[in-house]
Design a protein around this nucleic acid. Structure first.
Length: 552
RNA sequence: UGAGGUAUGGUGUAAUGGUAGCACUACAGAUUUUGGUUCUGUCUGCCCAAGUUCGAAUCUUGGUACCUCAACCA
């Protein structure tokens, strides 16, 4: 059912533009720099750019902002495409800023001819000094008044490789005392003798972001160029280049980027985690990358639901990760297949079970669909249950197995614990129980007990690797790491634990590499290498604090 | 008085001069063959001050706080 929702500010702008005839249809763009993998922050941008276009019958271009060859790589280009497709978005055109290098160069020469750009020989340090500060004006470069002819000659020599990296730059001639730092003669081109992943060695000068982005939007006739808030101060310069060159007037709009509690959302720092081997790779399931959360069992639908719920605005946004997890649970709960698994086994012997008898039960793969698909589960006289599902000195509100207590073994009988057997150290090794034959499902009166627990047959149980992923960081707000601390100081040492579990045969027969639990949900998800068809079995994990054994 | 942006429960997000609503969280209860799901309820909020008005989250004035900008990154 379509939920009524108020328009966000971007939707209002677009509806107004469509209504006023400012544009006939909209064209947005998603402009990643191919220098890392897409993360949850990008998911928001993706949902906004593609979502808005979809909603208003427009299109979205995928454009790689590849103007800095020293940081970029085709590995990232491919990974980005894969992640966007996984989210279910389809771009109109695949573009590259590097496709426009010739055009940008031509425009630069034109600006030089107009006396709007000059070649500067200052060193990086001199430029920084002469730029002034946010509160004090800058000083003109001694090279600022070169003639257009001289500038053109020098710029062509830059292009032709006559100078070393850093020796010269091309700057727009605007105003060194402008109150906006972005207008203090911004650099347009710098020299980089570097191999570009697409243009190869054709160029040794590369345009800067500010000189590239607006023009790229303009070339593609992007109507709404939507980016994050930190580019807000760049908008006047974006407009200045477009106006100066007299080209198609694309417009930039900004929204607040997504921050998540307990989550690091900086490509630079994520890269460091990968390079230093702190995680296994960009797709480590503890990473907030799209390929990481995908391996962790998150679905594209859940991510899109999350992006819809967090809204779009211009105030700084620090979302509680629990909303994301709620969205994932919401989606998984409806579609996930269930199996039973025991993590820390304790044997249950059914003393009144006929020797050698095996009963097979058809159990629903998803209880939300009782008439749906089932799997076969064998029941025998010796079973494993989880150690956490038994408590000898149980508090009143402990609903699982306890001495002389009854509990339902899920989908089968009610059993009663008659005897607790322990080893020399006092550890429970076996529970002797009796089953109540009259409680067989489908036969006779239904009898209800407080607790229902998971179990697997000792004769049929298969071992399985379980990986438990916890949050990677311990500090709630990773965007607020104290200045004197390194963000790595807040790594959670228990973010990954690997154990073994005993599974019912139907799950074990489904060849799986690993299974993961994601926090607070009670679901374990087998990693099926990025397929969206997750296998989920559930197990009580969210015990109320007072019922935890160590606190009882 | 550098420039720009933003202020609504714990976290997000609506209300655009007329009862401050919704979601997540937390807590309580009901249902339940997952202590899950579902359902119900409760707790918390308009940055501050003055002004305009019958009436202000909304308009005016003045404060305050936070974010962004001083890479040859994007």
């Amino acid at each position: 059912m379509e939920e009524e929702r108020k328009l966000n500010f971007l939707e209002e702008i677009i509806e107004e533009d469509l209504k006023s005839g400012k544009c006939e249809s909209i064209l947005t763009r998603f402009p990643p720099e191919p220098n890392g993998y897409l993360h949850l922050g990008h998911a928001k941008s993706l949902c906004i750019n593609f979502g808005l276009a979809q909603k208003y019958g427009g299109k979205t271009n995928l454009r790689y902002d590849d103007t800095n060859p020293t940081k970029e790589d085709t590995e990232y280009v491919d990974a980005i495409k894969e992640d966007i497709k996984w989210l279910g978005f389809q771009w109109e055109k695949e573009c590259y800023a590097s496709d426009y290098f010739d055009q940008l160069y031509e425009w630069a020469e034109w600006m030089i001819g107009q006396g709007l750009a000059y070649v500067d020989d200052q060193t990086q340090e001199q430029m920084r000094e002469n730029r002034g500060t946010v509160e004090t004006p800058g000083k003109n470069s001694p090279w600022r008044d070169r003639t257009p002819e001289e500038n053109l000659k020098l710029f062509r020599e830059m292009r032709d490789g006559k100078y070393a990296d850093g020796e010269k730059v091309l700057r727009a001639k605007i105003d060194m005392s402008h109150p906006k730092m972005e207008f203090r003669d911004p650099i347009m081109y710098r020299i980089k003798h570097a191999h570009h992943h697409r243009t190869g060695d054709k160029w040794c000068i590369y345009p800067m972001y500010d000189y590239t982005h607006g023009q790229s939007d303009s070339i593609e006739h992007i109507t709404h160029s939507i980016c994050t808030l930190e580019f807000d101060v760049h908008r006047p310069l974006y407009d200045w280049y477009i106006k100066t060159l007299g080209i198609y007037p694309s417009h930039q709009y900004e929204f607040a980027r997504l921050n998540l509690t307990y989550t690091l959302m900086s490509k630079r720092k994520l890269l460091e985690l990968v390079q230093k081997g702190i995680v296994a790779g960009w797709d480590d399931p503890r990473m907030p990358t799209l390929c990481g959360v995908r391996r962790r069992g998150y679905t594209a639908e859940a991510l899109k639901m999350f992006c819809e719920k967090i809204g779009v605005s211009k105030r700084d946004q620090l979302m509680d990760i629990q909303l994301l997890e709620w969205c994932v649970r919401q989606d998984l709960n409806a579609r996930a297949r269930r199996y039973m698994v025991v993590q820390d086994p304790v044997k249950v012997k059914i003393t009144n079970w006929p020797e050698g008898l095996v009963e097979w039960y058809d159990c629903p793969l998803n209880p939300a669909e009782p008439e749906g698909a089932t799997r076969k589960v064998p029941f025998t006289g010796e079973l494993w249950i989880d150690r956490a599902d038994f408590m000898e000195d149980a508090p009143k509100k402990f609903f699982r197995l306890k001495p002389d207590g009854e509990v339902r073994l899920k989908y089968t009988y009610i059993v009663k614990c008659n005897n607790v057997i322990k080893d020399a150290e006092g550890n429970v090794t076996e529970l002797e129980c009796t089953y109540d034959p009259s409680t067989k499902p489908g036969g006779g009166e239904w009898r209800s007990v407080k607790g229902t627990i998971h179990w697997v047959s000792c004769d049929y149980a298969k071992e399985l690797e379980l990986r438990n992923y916890d949050r990677l960081f311990t500090l709630a707000d990773m965007s607020q790491v104290p200045e004197d601390k390194d963000y790595k100081d807040f790594l959670n040492p228990d973010s990954l634990s690997i154990g073994r579990g005993l599974a019912e045969p139907a799950l074990a027969d489904d060849d799986s590499a690993i299974a993961v639990q994601f926090e607070r949900t009670g679901y374990y998800i087998k990693d099926k290498d990025s397929t969206p068809d997750h296998l989920v079995f559930n197990k009580t994990v969210s015990l109320k604090d007072s019922y935890k054994p160590e606190q009882a």
